[in-house]
């Protein structure tokens, strides 16, 4: 696959690199493995939701339901967690797939605009989650392996002893990052690799971009437009469900009131990643960069507070994120204009 960096896509990568460099220089421990792994662990949920959103937006659609679907899925998986890791996982993902199916059917069969259709599903999922959970959080069972989905490190069991030793050196640090890589981050990483292959090398991925670039043109050349649109909402729902599973596993409880604003965070990540809101153009890995960029802002604020000079309220993160969103988007539109077409 010949990869051409588009002018728009590289903007977010530059911004991310600058932010990491800024944090690394300014704060002790910012580039330490503990901080890196914490950031990755926490943001893996958002990465999954962002990946689904990326596919939806590439068709020219939007999925407002992802936050409440994740919340509902976290409740479902929490209830199923006593039966083991797999039932919890499948239950949460299944709940997400049901919601995605609903959105997809409303959009393709009833021809309702995605904004309205997923708004309806968002409300329905939110209500369902609250009903199931009786308006409170649902504790996850720690007897089964379920919580490792959020809290575990997939390869920790294979970790050689010497890595944690005092004189392990940089080799030890690097391998430590590898063996201590959080399970949810592995899940997100695999999802992005699969997503990238699907987008770039499978007919379905090209059809997604074609539908976003011109739906009627796609239909008239015989592409399965309805099936493609249906599938992206199914994917988005499934990934939101998976994010919900990780949410429950990570925080030890199904959280029916979590997920508020996730959809906007996901949309922002996708847009920052250079994917056109009108569809037809996009990239999976720049979306990941967008998620990390917006996620890191939260971390930076924490570090800034930790230095003790000023005390910034957590609400500032929204303001800063908003500013960053604007800056990166402006940067991108400038880059896109100067880049050779």
């Amino acid at each position: 696959m010949k990869h051409r960096w588009s002018g728009a896509g590289i903007g977010v990568v530059i911004a991310l690199a600058l932010l990491i460099a800024f944090g690394g220089i300014r704060y002790d421990g910012f580039l330490g493995s503990y901080n890196i792994l914490t950031v990755l662990r926490y943001n893996s949920m958002f990465a999954l939701v962002g990946l689904g959103m990326c596919f939806v937006i590439m068709t020219g659609g939007i999925d407002l339901s992802v936050g409440s679907v994740a919340a509902m899925a976290s409740v479902v998986s929490a209830y199923l967690s006593p039966y083991g890791l797999l039932p919890g996982l499948l239950g949460g993902v299944g709940a997400g797939l049901v919601a995605g199916t609903l959105s997809g059917l409303i959009i393709t069969k009833l021809k309702i605009l995605p904004f309205i259709a997923t708004l309806a599903v968002m409300l329905a999922a939110s209500g369902t989650g609250l009903l199931l959970a009786n308006n409170q959080s649902v504790a996850v069972s720690y007897d089964s392996a379920f919580t490792t989905l959020g809290q575990g490190n997939l390869l920790a069991a294979f970790k050689p002893e010497w890595i944690d030793g005092d004189n392990a050196g940089w080799m030890g640090t690097a391998l430590g990052l590898f063996f201590n890589f959080p399970t949810p981050a592995w899940i997100a990483l695999v999802a992005y690799i699969v997503g990238s292959v699907v987008l770039n090398a499978r007919p379905f991925g090209r059809h997604v971009l074609a539908v976003g670039g011109g739906e009627e043109a796609s239909r008239l050349m015989g592409l399965p437009t309805d099936r493609t649109v249906f599938a992206v909402y199914l994917i988005s729902g499934g990934l939101a469900g998976l994010a919900g599973v990780i949410l429950a596993a990570q925080f030890g409880a199904g959280q029916p009131i979590e997920g508020i604003g996730w959809e906007l965070f996901a949309i922002a990540s996708v847009v920052v990643g250079g994917t056109l809101l009108t569809g037809g153009k996009g990239s999976v890995f720049t979306t990941l960069a967008g998620v990390l960029l917006l996620g890191l802002i939260f971390t930076i604020l924490n570090f800034e507070n930790g230095m003790g000079w000023i005390s910034l309220s957590a609400y500032w993160q929204s303001v800063v994120r908003g500013a960053f969103l604007l800056v990166v988007v402006i940067l991108q539109s400038r880059l896109a204009r100067t880049a050779p077409a």
Binding site: M1, V197, A201, R202, P203, R206, H207, L209, A210, G213, G214, E216, A217, S218, L220, M221, G222, L223, G280, K281
Partner: peptide
């Protein structure tokens, strides 16, 4: 509106509908 996908390349515009037939084990044979 009904013919081209403006942002896509000549190559993709020509072969979009043919991709399933051009694929081997699910991946497009470029």
């Amino acid at each position: 509106q009904e013919g081209i996908i403006p942002g896509m390349s000549v190559r993709e515009n020509m072969t979009l509908a043919l991709l399933p037939a051009l694929s081997r084990s699910g991946l497009v044979d470029e």
